[in-house]
Design a protein around this nucleic acid. Structure first.
Lengths: 336, 336
DNA sequence: CTGAAAGCGCTTACAG
DNA sequence: CTGAAAGCGCTTACAG
């Protein structure tokens, strides 16, 4: 036998038809157990594997999922938010568990970033991951949906399509409540708080609700926009520090922002948490190594990856599905 | 037009045969430029994409590469060395640049971890990434090679197959020389120094050569085994600290080990770098956030990913290829 | 420069 | 329970 074995080779050796081999390999109830056993034994012996391209072409489904990262084109493309690596690992594992392959792309959203995938039948569905301007990506999502692509997004629920998200509002509430419990009354919020960045906006909402619950005023001067980079956190905090509004604690909308904030605070000759307590969001690996170690809100990436994959699979099978929100937990370390 | 457009739809609209469409789409010199333009215009208009499964099945090549992580089964599977994420990002980008897709798998090496890939025609070649016991993985690699699978490995050159690696020996030499220049004479090495972990062993060789070059003795008591985890670094350093051999500097075979080492040193009531200077290897993102910020040896992951992909592609095209070694650079921060 | 035809290796009605 | 046959959507000799 030269080259890869085919189902015909097995059929020949097993003394059955190729159709029967195909059925036996997939445990069809139509085939006698005895035949199944015989076929499988020979297949194993020949180190035979079903040719995915042939079966995908014929059955019109590929048993692979695509993972697309979309980020603001402005961010340095060599720097991916570490948070997404945790998601990637968990998504990969969840795919493997379901017998699906995972195609990964970090490409930034080009004009037909979507087209390259499902359209070309490479994947049965798409998982979308990324922090980016939500308002800008909506039209693309709408287009995806309109052309019948199965996809699921990590992020807050929106009009377009299915999404899985952590409970950002709860997280924001937990972070802020923790700060209030520590005796802080003037708490700054660093991160975009607009519909452009709904995840941050939800975290901000949680911040506001915790403040109000404790009869504390929400001061616009204590909120400063920042996208999720260390540098943005650094710049924004510097501005906050130079402003008139005083504060003894700072809630950063992401760990990366928090790290930049701590840098700015230290540069101003202040101590964390002595002068200003800082809490982040995400619990990226770096968080436990910063000095001081960063208190933060943990998102359950392990669960998130699983839910993302299983829900997308349900969508593909046309089972009923719904957007899901996953609870967050606070991780208290030394920065608060 | 319902469903996805096929090359026949285009042929019909363009008034040419389907064969011509297929050729035109791939810029065949056999086709008149005018025809090419017309065909492409219609294809674009229909949002047509070549069906990858059909073309792969026919041409017997998939234009996708597979990335396999193999790690010691003993390590916690949720924790992947951050260093590999940088590699992953760069490999993904390099693949995209070459027009190849990337299939990712974190699965641990099962009995037929290899078979699932190339055998099933899903990928044209495999990139192997991971720290694991080298002696144990050799037989599997040999099997891969024997069955004609195209693959490339990140790691020191070995008998089995092609590999790309950073110059571990040079890195070890740079790290140790740096410590010596800082006035240290008694330098510990934490990391496995055996053929089981050839990357570490090479770093150790570099350490030895720097020592010898400066007429310093190589003391076995100053070397302590550790695999590449924070915990291993912590435990090994603790043992070293409790031993009789004194040292004022420590070269950790990886950043993760270095972080564990710093923890152990601090716990012993000693200062870094005051009492013991520490240098790591890898330059993972965390390295610049530890306290003190970690001096380390940087591996050029950007270049590594590109070389890995382009060399594998050359191998697939049966062009002449050879294993390549990439130079390392020292990054001096506050821990030395 | 273009077209008609074969065939990649499967899955799945259809017929028995 | 099994087999003969069609066909998924391409690429590529072969013929002109």
């Amino acid at each position: 036998m030269k080259g890869k074995a085919t189902s015909f080779d097995i059929a020949h050796l097993a003394g059955v038809s190729q159709s029967t081999v195909s059925r036996a390999l997939r445990d069809s109830p139509l085939v006698k157990q005895e035949t199944i056993d015989k076929v499988k034994a020979i297949a194993h012996q020949l180190n035979y594997k079903v040719d995915k391209h042939a079966s995908s072409l014929r059955s019109q489904q590929s048993h692979t999922l695509a993972l697309l990262f979309f980020e603001d084109p402005t961010t340095d493309d060599s720097l991916i938010n570490p948070f997404f690596f945790a998601m990637l690992a968990s998504i990969t594992q969840a795919c493997a568990k379901q017998g699906y392959d995972l195609l990964v792309s970090f490409q930034q959203l080009s004009n037909d970033w979507h087209a390259d995938y499902e359209d070309s039948h490479k994947a049965d569905g798409i998982i979308l991951l990324g922090y980016g301007d939500d308002i800008e990506s909506q039209p693309k999502l709408a287009q995806l949906k309109q052309q019948g692509t199965r996809f699921i997004r990590w992020g807050p629920e929106s009009d377009t399509g299915l999404s899985i998200s952590c409970d950002n509002r709860l997280g924001g509430y937990q972070a802020t409540s923790h700060l209030i419990e520590r005796g802080h009354q003037r708490i700054a919020f660093v991160g975009n708080a607009s519909k452009h960045y709904p995840e941050f906006f939800d975290r901000y909402q949680g911040y506001v609700s915790a403040l109000l619950e404790h009869q504390l005023a929400v001061e616009p001067a204590l909120q400063q926009d920042a996208i999720t980079t260390e540098d943005a956190g650094y710049q924004s905090t510097k501005q906050l520090l130079q402003g008139d509004a005083e504060f003894t604690a700072l809630f950063a909308a992401s760990d990366l922002i928090a790290i930049g904030a701590i840098k700015a605070i230290k540069e101003a000759g202040l101590k964390v948490p002595g002068d200003i307590a800082v809490i982040g969001f995400d619990d990226i690996p770096i968080a436990s190594y910063t000095s001081p170690a960063l208190s933060t809100i943990r998102q359950d990436t392990k669960l998130a990856g699983e839910v993302l994959v299983t829900t997308l699979l349900s969508l593909i099978k046309e089972e009923p599905v719904e957007s899901i929100t996953i609870a967050t937990n606070i991780v208290v370390r030394s920065s608060t």
